[in-house]
């Protein structure tokens, strides 16, 4: 299944930030949703801003247009305000993208756990994200930081408890 680009993507002015406030607002919203759906489609959880600049999202080779660094930063800042993105460093070179909130991931994981009758069982994080049993699940391949956050969200609800051991972490569902 290939990624479906929005119509704006083939519209050259989309790659230049618009001066009009209203238009710009709409443009940013479109960029945000494009960036998120692209990450969702390719299951991207961390982005490097330099790499992002070269990725097809912000660099449309067919129409020879690319979003400038400043514009990308503005889009990312917008995403951060919405709670979908977090910077990993002060210089804003790497960031975490959350196209699904930790609570939602937690819900998905918990659904899988209870559907398979594995409540009250202990799991290693590796087993959850990379185990053979979860291969067909959406959370397969979830990055560790995201997994931990979603499990912590479950912990808040009392549905799970993260266990820390000397080497690595585990989780028990309730």
């Amino acid at each position: 299944m290939s990624f479906e680009w929005p119509w704006q993507y083939n519209f050259p002015p989309f790659f230049t930030l618009q001066p009009n406030v209203d238009t710009r607002q709409k443009q940013l919203a479109a960029w945000c949703s494009l960036a998120l759906s692209y990450c969702r489609h390719h299951k991207l959880y961390t982005l490097d801003i330099m790499e992002a600049q070269e990725s097809p999202v912000f660099n449309h080779k067919n129409i020879d247009r690319k979003l400038s660094m400043e514009a990308i930063l503005i889009v990312f800042e917008e995403l951060r305000k919405k709670g979908n993105l977090e910077w990993l460093d002060k210089n804003k070179t790497r960031c975490l993208v959350m196209w699904r909130r930790p609570e939602e991931w937690g819900k998905l994981i918990y659904q899988w756990v209870s559907k398979n009758g594995m409540v009250n069982t202990v799991f290693t994080l590796y087993e959850l994200a990379n185990g053979d049993d979860t291969e067909s699940e959406e959370f397969h391949g979830l990055e560790d930081w995201m997994l931990i956050r979603s499990l912590q969200a479950l912990q808040m609800d009392g549905k799970a408890e993260v266990i820390s051991m000397d080497d690595g972490k585990g989780v028990k569902f309730f």
């Binding site: 799991f123 590796y126 266990i163 690595g168 028990k172």
Partner: peptide, 16 residues
Amino acid sequence: PSRVTEQDRAILQLKQ
């Protein structure tokens, strides 16, 4: 109180 028992920890260790 934590609901994780000693057995759970043992299982986790085995699984790790």
